[in-house]
Amino acid sequence: MCTYATHKVELDGAAKGASGWFTLTDGAVYVDHPQHAAREHTLNIDFTNPADGPSARAAVELTEEAALALVEAIQKALASAPPGLAARGGEPAERG
């Protein structure tokens, strides 16, 4: 299929795309046909800054297994660091 749920998320950080580093403001997460991965469907993430134009984008296309492993790795990495170390204001973010 060509369309599926798209989850948008506000992001704060930086990413490196085809034209170099840019400040990250937005993300979109969705399951759809990939551009490049040799799969019928993948979990796709666009890291973007729309204010800097469409080229301010870093894209990943992951299998479901890889996406879930990534989520787990992110949670483990955060859990192993002192709370708040990577938080915006130095205070721990609420963790769901």
Partner: peptide, 17 residues
């Protein structure tokens, strides 16, 4: 309309959003 000189995949992602 997503911009000249922009890769077609980046244009598609912007249009989709």
């Amino acid at each position: 309309r997503e911009g000249a000189g922009v890769g077609p995949d980046d244009q598609a992602a912007a249009a989709r959003a």
